[in-house]
């Protein structure tokens, strides 16, 4: 189960912050583009990778996603991988510095709140490459990565609208951050793609972590007729179970939270990003860009339905799969909209 206020804050906040970064990089080109494109780096033999995580690597969640992706990337490119888990914000800088002074070539700061610490340490170790979940400015040796899960939200919206025979679906989240707004608007667009008459309810519970409140918001939406809920904050799935509705999970396969209620989940896989970054560091082609890997790169996917696909009308399922392929091929672009809502 989900546990630990700090970790959840970090997770949810990170998602928000990554979205913010991606918003920036989408809306405003990075000021360091010149540096980024001109700097050719020395190729690295015997690549070593370190990842610094704010929570335990066994959290079945954000930190596990990051850790496993780093391990997978290391396996793929033949690099040694070290990690430090449960690193608090207060200790992030020291941990990053330890890795850098120990000579690690690629250091991944896998928490939204490690940005400033990463920039400070990166300035001291220009030969190492840093990847930060977010950074307020891009230094020459600091790249960023984000989670464009709004692309998956579009598919989730389609699924939800296709299942909701009464014409109402719901969406429950924390607070209005750019990332979550993009997610909501894509979800709405996807729902309307299937059913132009659909009603999409949304709730921002006003807090990053408040499961009882998320549960109440979910139940309220169900009482207003919502049959499927997008669960963007902890507690939503519990509400869906209590109210007898379906839910779509986020980040990892959350079916285990409600085997009869969690239709599927929008997965985020970091292995493609980390593998590509590691390869680029090895061959010297790495640049300090923002790595935004979505459906096209195989980073955003739908999880297994665990048998609940029987609840989805066949024509809807077919349309969803078709749309997914179009997003992947670039034929269809999911609208990116971070307008605030009521």
């Amino acid at each position: 189960m989900k546990s630990g206020l700090h970790r959840t804050l970090a997770v949810v906040g990170l998602v928000a912050a990554i979205g913010f970064t991606s918003a920036c990089s989408t809306a405003v080109p990075s000021g360091n583009t010149d540096n980024a494109t001109s700097a050719a780096r020395t190729p690295v033999e015997d690549l070593s990778i370190a990842i610094v995580l704010s929570g335990p690597i066994t959290d079945n969640d954000f930190n596990q996603v990051g850790y496993e992706a780093a391990e997978a990337a290391g396996e793929e490119v033949g690099a040694e991988v070290a990690y430090a888990e449960n690193v608090s914000d207060a200790n992030a800088e020291r941990t990053l510095r330890n890795f850098a002074s120990d000579g690690y070539d690629l250091i991944i700061a896998h928490s939204f709140s490690f940005g400033d610490a990463t920039l400070r340490v990166a300035a001291e170790f220009p030969d190492a490459v840093f990847m930060a979940g977010t950074a307020t400015s891009n230094a020459e040796n600091v790249g960023t990565y984000d989670n464009p899960d709004y692309q998956g939200a579009y598919l989730a919206g389609m699924l939800a609208a296709g299942v909701a025979s009464e014409g109402t679906v719901g969406w429950v989240s924390a607070i209005q951050t750019p990332n979550l707004l993009a997610n909501l608007h894509a979800y709405e667009a996807g729902a309307e793609d299937i059913n132009p008459e659909i009603t999409v309810l949304h709730s921002f519970i006003g807090s990053f972590y408040d499961p009882p409140r998320a549960r109440e918001a979910a139940l309220a939406q169900i009482q207003s007729g919502a049959q499927v809920l997008s669960a963007q904050t902890v507690g939503t799935i519990d509400g869906a179970i209590d109210g007898g509705a379906l839910a779509i999970g986020a980040l990892t396969d959350q079916n285990f939270l409600g085997p009869d209620n969690v239709l599927t989940s929008v997965l985020w896989d970091l292995a493609p990003v980390f593998t590509d970054v590691a390869t680029a560091v090895q061959d010297g082609s790495w640049t300090n860009e923002n790595y935004s890997y979505g459906v096209a790169e195989g980073s955003i996917t739908l999880a297994d339905f665990h048998g609940l696909d029987s609840r989805v009308p066949a024509d809807v399922m077919a349309t969803v799969l078709e749309r997914e392929a179009e997003i992947a091929s670039g034929e269809f672009e999911v609208p990116y909209d971070v307008t605030t809502v009521d």
Binding site: H6, L9, S88, D89, A90, N91, E93, S113, D116
Partner: peptide, 16 residues
């Protein structure tokens, strides 16, 4: 001292 000497700002997790 932690804010002024180490973090350079106030953060939520100032204290481990």
């Amino acid at each position: 001292i932690q804010v002024s000497g180490v973090q350079g700002k106030m953060i939520v997790n100032l204290s481990p």
